[in-house]
Design a protein around this nucleic acid. Structure first.
Lengths: 333, 333
DNA sequence: TTGTAAGCGTTATCAC
DNA sequence: GTGATAACGCTTACAA
């Protein structure tokens, strides 16, 4: 294994000088640097980041802890974040909690032991709050993403209330009153999407019946559940507020022989290219921006050294927008 | 920053003993370990992986170098690989070359400096062969994925010849003779998919005309190009052999008012859930398996220490299969 | 079973 | 500008 010592020997300089040649902040004679770099190249020398991290007390690694990749949203953000982080000299460590607190725990521990400089993560439960607090000891900056579980952490998430409101509002404006919204069971009681839905419905003077809000978990057969609920309620429109349920909802419509938009209107949450192909309206997120914004924000946190005083958590809302295509029909009240 | 020394002090043992308590291979009295672990817990101690890596000369990191996330295939594999690697105590470093040799170079360098234990990667060009060769000096195991660019590297890829053959063969069996295959321009001249297509066509005694093979690059308007080609050739079936062109091809059919399968049959390469929804036949890959297989294979490479002698490269082909739905109509010869 | 001491490959500090 | 020397926080002999 070639080390800076070997390079030093060949270049006839001290090991310290080799180290200097590989950092641009340092005082070093241009010619010396050139000689060192040549020697390094000749020997096939690559600096050892572990040693560097150990000494500098910064790993130049960002930990990304997602739940899974079920959603195009996460994969797009991942790639964007990776690109931005890399542009700034950081490497990305990728993990998935799978919505399981014990996996979240394992990964947070792993991040701490890796001495990552920052963590972007989708919190699963407050079960691992001790670890979140422990990050502070190691000067690891943590950014909550998507969910706002810890009130004292900086947070970056989609304004789902607005997203669902915008979609529902569009439906009510088009004359719809019996709207079925589908949401994940996990979010029951704390769903901002349901809040947005309610607000729009109230504003339109539409009746808010419990049957209009369908909570589903992924394991049960969602298509059947939706078909059942739809044939019961006979809604004029469906708002699939989780990408997990969009295809099942579409399937349910197909099973009930309900054409979109003739027989039923449809809006999906989270846009993608095949929804575009099928001319289905969707609540979309400015993905390119989001990745850049999260990255910049975390990098700023990392580079600021305000260890003193109380930290006022920053909460940044990302505004989604409705992409109108042709899956919503205007109907008569 | 709490170190093993602090823990040692509190537990009234030597620092070595603390180190031992955190590894299960070592001789240590159960009670001592218990005392140490308690002390560690009390102090909020987390072992420092950089120090560990430096000393042990293994980072327990796997570098994953993909081109991008345009394809569901890669995201699924990523999650699967991450999961398997984590089960075996490895962390995943994720990067994207974006098909650019200079980015590939930068990431390979980064992996080497990180002293990753293994690399799974989609090679972009042989421009960075020096780095691929350099990995050997650092005992970094490299696994090519998807593409077989270096004949001396272990390799894991989809049998695209078979995939395209199977799809085309199915079409010819259903009576089709004028089949338009769409392939990426990058692969022109070296496309195994085109090979498979040709073989099936030959076997069916179908005429192989150049117009039947459409090479496209992503930047130009693929929908128009496909629509143009289709209205020219008037194929009875389309085989979109790259997921990049599936939606454009579908769009082209829509634009030409060609219904599937009544007016035109269709098979897509790379399956996904919305193709299922649209009842479109597709060449699918055993994704769950693939992630597990790649991971196991790389881990075996890492754990084997056959530094001696010449290494016989292992080439593993993954067999895709055709998922028949209802986008192919039987027609009369 | 436990402790001592050396060293992994860097960077930081301080001379010169 | 450059070089010696001491860490960084672990693991690995080797000794007790």
């Amino acid at each position: 294994m070639i080390t800076s010592r070997d390079v030093a020997k060949l270049a006839k300089v001290s090991q310290t000088t080799v180290s200097r040649a590989f950092r641009d902040e340092c005082y070093i004679h241009p010619e010396t640097r050139k000689r060192v770099l040549e020697a390094a190249n000749q020997l096939g020398y690559f600096p050892n980041y572990s040693a560097k991290s150990l000494k500098k007390r910064q790993s130049k690694i960002i930990g990304l802890l997602l739940t899974n990749y079920s959603n195009k949203f996460y994969t797009t953000i991942t790639q964007s974040v990776e690109s931005h982080m890399n542009d700034n000299g950081y490497r990305l460590m990728l993990t998935f909690s799978d919505e399981k607190p014990d996996k979240e725990r394992k990964y947070l521990e792993s991040f701490i032991s890796s001495r990552v400089d920052g963590i972007i993560y989708i919190p699963v439960s407050r079960e691992n709050e001790d670890l979140v607090k422990a990050t502070e000891q190691f000067d690891i900056k943590v950014l909550q993403f998507t969910r706002n579980l810890y009130e004292y952490l900086d947070s970056f998430f989609i304004d789902d209330e607005l997203g669902a409101y915008t979609a529902t509002r569009y439906l009510t404006n088009m004359g719809h009153r019996r709207i079925l919204i589908i949401e994940s069971e996990i979010n029951r009681g704390a769903s901002m999407k349901i809040e947005g839905y309610r607000r729009a419905m109230r504003e339109a003077g539409a009746e808010l019946i419990p049957e209009g809000m369908l909570y589903l978990n992924a394991d049960a057969d969602p298509t059947s559940a939706i078909a059942y609920a739809a044939s019961d309620l006979r809604p004029t429109a469906i708002l699939s507020s989780s990408s997990m349920f969009t295809l099942p909802a579409l399937n349910a419509c197909q099973r009930l022989k309900l054409n979109i938009p003739e027989d039923i209107s449809f809006i999906a949450y989270d846009d993608n290219e095949w929804l575009d192909f099928m001319h289905i309206d969707a609540v979309a997120h400015p993905m390119d921006e989001i990745g850049a914004q999260i990255s910049d924000f975390l990098l700023k946190m990392i580079n600021s050294k305000e260890d003193d005083g109380v930290h006022q958590p920053v909460v940044r809302m990302i505004k989604p927008h409705l992409v109108v295509r042709s899956s919503v029909k205007r109907i008569e009240g």
